[in-house]
Amino acid sequence: METVQIPNLYWNIAADLHFPPGFDAQKKYPAIISAHPIGSCKEQTSGNVYGTALAKEGFVVIAFDASFQGASGGEPRFIEDPSHRVEDFRVVADYLTTLPYVDEQRIGVLGLCGGGGYSINAAMTERRIKAVATVTGVNYGRLMREGFSGFSPIALLESIAQQRTAEARGAERRVDDLLPPSPEEAKRVGATEIDVYEATEYYRTPRGQKPNGLNRSLLSHQGNAVGWDAFHLAEVLLTQPLMVVVGDKVGAFGAYRDGCEIIGRAASKTKELVVVAGWSHYDLYDKPEPVRQALAKLVPFFKEHLS
């Protein structure tokens, strides 16, 4: 593995390159861009689980941190803005085309959770991406308008407006912690809905905890997300082969629902919904059996469409 810094506008994107066994820099390899969930980082499921697994199957995989998050640059920190998140894919694709061992005609993308929605949206207008797959992918804009705003998007936008005004006048930035500090605290405060509780169990215990996977969001910069739709124009612009992997233990973050929706809407002639029976959103992050089942579909999908 190699860690690299990729120039963006006025900051760098930090990324890990995962190489196949017996890697030979004189050869040409297919490449996969692996995108992390909301509030996550490249050292979690996008890199250390799916990135390493796909590299073992012969792909060069680049797992990157979103701008303003993780080890990537950008100020202020903890911005979760879809326009920046989607642009990151283009910047990473730019970088891949400069690597002599990457075949620029064989670049795919894999997105996890919110990274799945971003992957789909990026692929619509980034034609260097030749195949798209998501694992428990979520349309972050839809989630912001619904569960993350308490189904009151206008009230959230009013709060954002007030906070931006306060910050413009010198107030301290408000950074929200999106999860309880521990599973025990989640139970104490009643945060036991399956996705919320299992997110806490993953991110707030040694199972998935990493220094840069902080699950924080800057309130004053959330407005764009409220008005964004990952699937906008999918009926026209999303034509690449598409695979969507979801678990059938349904939670509030809505990956199953979003997966069914994008499979129905995508213009892709080749598209497949893979339902991993008996497993949940966060099971698909790192638990061996559901990850094995997901990879059993993802690996041949990428091999076929990046051949």
Rank of each mutant, 00 (worst) to 15 (best):
I38N: 15
I38D: 06
G39D: 09
C41L: 02
K42E: 05
E43V: 04
Q44T: 11
Q44A: 14
G47E: 03
G47I: 06
V49C: 13
Y50V: 02
Y50E: 05
G51A: 01
A53W: 15
A53V: 04
A53D: 12
A55Q: 03
K56H: 01
K56C: 00
E57A: 08
V61D: 00
V61N: 00
V61C: 02
D65S: 11
D65F: 15
F68W: 05
Q69E: 14
G70I: 07
A71C: 10
S72W: 07
G74F: 11
G74C: 11
E75Q: 08
P76A: 12
R77I: 05
R77A: 13
I79Q: 15
E80Y: 01
E80S: 00
D81G: 11
D81Q: 13
P82T: 04
S83E: 06
R85P: 00
D88E: 05
V91D: 00
V92S: 09
V92Q: 05
A93R: 06
D94L: 13
L96E: 07
L96Q: 11
T97Q: 06
T98Q: 05
P100V: 02
P100Q: 09
P100R: 07
Y101K: 03
Y101F: 14
Y101R: 01
Y101V: 02
D103L: 07
D103R: 05
E104Q: 13
E104R: 13
Q105S: 15
R106P: 05
I107Y: 06
I107A: 06
I107E: 01
G108N: 03
G108P: 04
V109H: 04
C113I: 02
G114A: 12
G115Y: 03
G115E: 01
G115W: 03
Y118S: 03
S119K: 05
A123H: 08
E126Q: 11
E126M: 07
R127T: 13
I129E: 01
A131N: 04
V132K: 06
A133F: 04
T134K: 00
V135Y: 12
T136K: 00
V138N: 07
N139C: 07
L143P: 08
L143E: 07
R145H: 10
F148I: 00
S149I: 00
S149R: 15
G150M: 09
F151C: 08
S152H: 14
P153R: 15
P153M: 11
I154F: 10
A155F: 12
E158W: 14
E158Q: 13
E158Y: 13
E158R: 14
S159G: 01
S159Q: 06
S159V: 00
Q162R: 14
Q163V: 01
T165C: 07
A166E: 00
E167L: 13
E167P: 15
E167D: 12
G170N: 09
E172K: 13
R173N: 11
R173W: 02
